[in-house]
Write a protein that binds this DNA or RNA. Structure first.
Lengths: 200, 200
DNA sequence: TTTTCTTGATTGACGAGTCAATTAAAAACC
DNA sequence: GGTTTTTAATTGACTCGTCAATCAAGAAAA
């Protein structure tokens, strides 16, 4: 039944993190048990503790993973972007890319937001995400918006979070491109007339 | 020590609801105990169960109360509003009025959003809030935005939620008027040039 | 034989909800 | 006006389940 192969640690860690995200998404809260997560990952609860120490660490690892996926998506898009407008598109569309825009992932994000209210480490992680998003947006907007870039970037960041929230709470199937267009439309309105919304 | 007066029910209910909101705000999560809430309200845990049946009902009552406060604030502003622009101002500023914009209240809102992911009744309540906000905004925007009113209203609603989120997670002292101006600024940008942001 | 991986039983704490008992106001009765 | 009964308010101890975390032990690789 049990087959101890070597080098299982990274595999188990990844499986447990994925399972945690899925469980949070399904339950809609962090009030899930380590045993549930472990069962979904196909291991015992003891093993989860063995690798992560405690429940909080496992949850935080899941949060880091979700953030890493998001960052990766944005970085990928940014690398291929030349003009400021393309950079803007990359940032917004990256956030609404399929991988970060499934119901499970959105629910996980929402729960992590709230976790940041009570956990220092979660707050730290959220800060990193929040700062980077704003910084990316500000840079991309600078050539078009000048001094107004930080202000518009802050608003755009809030709008992204808000759209996330609404999609997470809606029963409709999430549609990333539509959501991204909505945000991009709002930004282009702030910039004055010049339309920037193109579909890629 | 104990002094059974008659007609205590409404007083106790209100005290327990206030205590629940304060505890949620302080803990930053719904993982608080009925005993904690009861203690803060100055009664025993048994009494909380006596009046509310169970923890969920108490939490939902707190959610309803928070929503009622918000609705009241908006209704008050709307009553005094004549022009569409005044209506818009009232809706946005009402949401960011002092009573709904204290750290405790914001935390409670955030937790209730997430609760709506797992509780049918909470989802129902959130829906009501969400629909009303969008409907109010759409009506106010109709004369200025015509067909685009629903679209702009949806975006504005998402932005309001996003700003709430950011303020809730920030360590800075919440500043309602500034937040409201930010949202109103974004709306007026969507409407084209005509500036609408006035301070009241 | 040492290390890595793994389990499942166990422990210990904690918390929601119940319940019997107590107090005092109010109402009913004489 | 006084006595009895009912009803509202209130407590805190108790039950019962749950769950995070620990631990001893086993099974396979190295």
């Amino acid at each position: 039944m049990n087959m101890p192969k070597l080098g299982m640690e990274p595999i188990r860690r990844a499986a447990l993190i994925d399972a945690a995200i899925a469980e949070i998404g399904q339950a809609g809260s962090l009030g899930i048990t380590v045993s549930q997560i472990a069962r979904r990952a196909g291991v015992s609860s003891g093993l989860a503790h063995h690798y992560f120490g405690n429940k909080d660490q496992l949850l935080l690892a899941a949060m880091r993973h979700v953030m890493a996926d998001y960052s990766e998506e944005v970085r990928k898009g940014l690398k291929a972007a030349g003009t400021p407008i393309e950079r803007l598109n990359a940032i917004v569309r990256g956030g609404f890319a399929l991988s970060n825009f499934r119901p499970d992932t959105i629910s996980a994000w929402m729960n992590f937001y709230v976790l940041a209210l009570s956990s220092d480490e979660a707050r730290r992680l959220h800060r990193i995400y929040s700062r980077r998003l704003r910084s990316n947006l500000t840079h991309a907007l600078r050539p078009m918006a000048g001094d107004r870039a930080p202000e518009i970037a802050a608003r755009a960041a809030a709008l992204i979070d808000g759209v996330y929230l609404n999609v997470g709470l809606s029963t409709e199937v999430p549609n990333g491109p539509v959501a991204a267009d909505s945000v991009l439309g709002a930004i282009s309105a702030e910039l004055g007339r010049p339309k920037s919304g193109r579909q890629g």
